[in-house]
């Protein structure tokens, strides 16, 4: 079964994004943490409402995608709208994006947390 279920049809994807196929921001990583800067307002698109509700606490792009049952690329487009209008802020990962190793201090933190699991 497709994880996205019966709603995963091109028409729905077209509708929620207003027909755009590419996010202009392009900066949203899977683990960029999204934070709502306002409450949903009446008349807002339902996907925007859901995002603002979920992101009352920092929420990763990939968790929004799973909750909305929309592909990550579609969620990126929705987030671009919200970011452009100041309704959310984005906390991007601080790890190097290219094949570069992370800081030893960060690895130490991860190691400590794993030992505590």
């Amino acid at each position: 079964m497709s994880p996205l279920g019966p709603d995963d049809d091109p028409d729905r994807l077209y509708t929620v994004t207003g027909g755009r196929s590419r996010a202009t921001g392009g900066a949203f990583d899977l683990v960029t943490l999204i934070v709502a800067e306002c409450e949903p307002a009446p008349g807002m698109q339902s996907e925007h409402v859901r995002i603002l509700e979920l992101a009352r606490r920092p929420t990763a792009v990939v968790e929004l995608s799973a909750a909305l049952r929309l592909p990550v690329s579609v969620v990126r487009i929705l987030l671009t709208d919200l970011l452009d209008t100041g309704r959310i802020t984005a906390r991007h990962p601080r790890t190097p994006a290219r094949a570069e190793l992370p800081e030893p201090d960060l690895l130490k933190e991860v190691l400590d947390a794993l030992h505590r699991l």
Binding site: V31, T32, L33, P58, A60, R91, P93, L106, V110
Partner: peptide, 12 residues
């Protein structure tokens, strides 16, 4: 299980 309000760095 929400993240901390101060969460700002996602790792993969």
């Amino acid at each position: 299980a929400p993240l901390h309000q101060s969460a700002d760095n996602g790792l993969k």
